[in-house]
C-alpha cells in the first residue's frame, strides 16, 4: 500500500506549489494512471514516491514505512523495491544494453562487483532472460544509445524486471514514442502488471490509452486531486475538469465554449 499524505511541494517561494495538500492511497495490485496537464504536478508526485524529490511537507508511506523520513540506508532499500521508467528512457548511453539492465541488481550486489563491473554469471543470465522477455534479447551487447526509442524503453523495463520491485513508477513512459510503439510498450507494462503482480503508477498524456490500461484513474490539476475513480467514471465533463485551461489563452483553438469540446479531441471520439 502506497500512501501520499497531505503532500505539498514548493520549488521556489514565489512559485505556486507543484503539489498542494495532496492525499492518495494506492492499494497493492492497482494500475493507476495519473492524468493532468503539463506542470500539474504528476512528475513531482511520482518522484515523491521513491524519494527522488522530498516534499516540502506531508509524507509518503510504502507498506507502512515512511519514504519521506527514511534515513539514507533505509531509503536505498525502499527504492530497491520500486522500479522506475522515464519519458527520455535515461539509459547510460555509452554502456551496453546488458550492463544497463544489470543496474537493476546494484542494490543487492556487493559494492566491489558494481564498482569493477564484474557481475556474477547468474546476474548476467537474469539480465539476458529479462531482455528476451521484453523482446530484445538479440541486442544485449549493443550500445544503449544506438537503439530506437521503443527499444530503449524496453531496456529500461528489463532493468525493472531484474530489480523485481513490488511497485512500478512510470513518468510519461510513452510520451516520446510513436502511437504504435507506445501501444506496444503499454501492452508490455500491462502484461508485467498482471504476471508479476506489480502495482503500477503511470503518468500518461493520452486519455484514451489511460482508459484502456488503468484500473483506476487519478486527475491532478494545479497540484490538487480533482478526479479519482474507475476508468468508466471518467466522463467528458470530468476530462474537461482535468484539462480545462486556467485562462482564456487556449479558447480560440477549441470548438465551442458551452460544451466540453476538448475531451472530443483528447478522447479521439
Amino acid at each position: 500500500m502506497l500512501q501520499f499524505i497531505d503532500l505539498t511541494k514548493r520549488y521556489g517561494k514565489a512559485d505556486p506549489p507543484a503539489l498542494q495538500d495532496f492525499s492518495l492511497t494506492v492499494e497493492e495490485g492497482e494500475f493507476v494512471v495519473l492524468l493532468g496537464r503539463s506542470g500539474a504536478g504528476k512528475s513531482t508526485l511520482i518522484r515523491c514516491a521513491n524519494g527522488l524529490i522530498r516534499p516540502t511537507s506531508g509524507e509518503v508511506r510504502w507498506k507502512g514505512e515512511s519514504v519521506t523520513r527514511a534515513k539514507k540506508e533505509e531509503l536505498l532499500k525502499l527504492r530497491a523495491g520500486m522500479g522506475m521508467i522515464f519519458q527520455q528512457f535515461q539509459l547510460i548511453s555509452r554502456l551496453d544494453v546488458l550492463t544497463n539492465v544489470m543496474v537493476g541488481r546494484f542494490h543487492h550486489l556487493p559494492l566491489w562487483r558494481s564498482l569493477t563491473g564484474t557481475f556474477p554469471p547468474e546476474v548476467v543470465e537474469t539480465a539476458r532472460e529479462a531482455l528476451h522477455r521484453v523482446g530484445i534479447g538479440h541486442l544485449a551487447r549493443q550500445r544503449a544509445d544506438g537503439l530506437s526509442g521503443g527499444q530503449q524503453q524496453r531496456v529500461a523495463i528489463a532493468r525493472v524486471l531484474v530489480q523485481r520491485p513490488k511497485l512500478l513508477l512510470g513518468d510519461e513512459p510513452v510520451a516520446s514514442l510513436d502511437p504504435v510503439t507506445a501501444d506496444a510498450i503499454l501492452r508490455l507494462l500491462k502484461e508485467i502488471h498482471r504476471h508479476e503482480k506489480m502495482t503500477t503508477i503511470l503518468n500518461l498524456h493520452d486519455v484514451h490509452m489511460a482508459r484502456r490500461v488503468a484500473t483506476r484513474i487519478v486527475g491532478i490539476r494545479n497540484g490538487r486531486l480533482v478526479f479519482d475513480g474507475k476508468p468508466e467514471e471518467l466522463d467528458e465533463s470530468r476530462v474537461w475538469d482535468i484539462y480545462r485551461p486556467d485562462d482564456d489563452c487556449c479558447r480560440p483553438f477549441l470548438v465551442h465554449e458551452s460544451q466540453p469540446p476538448v475531451s472530443h479531441v483528447l478522447l479521439r471520439v
Binding site: 527522488l52 547510460i92 532493468r159
Partner: peptide
C-alpha cells in the same frame, strides 16, 4: 541529470 535519476531509482549507492 536523467541517467543519474535512473540509477538512483534502483536503490544504488
Amino acid at each position: 541529470p536523467g541517467p543519474r535519476e535512473a540509477v538512483a531509482s534502483t536503490g544504488a549507492r
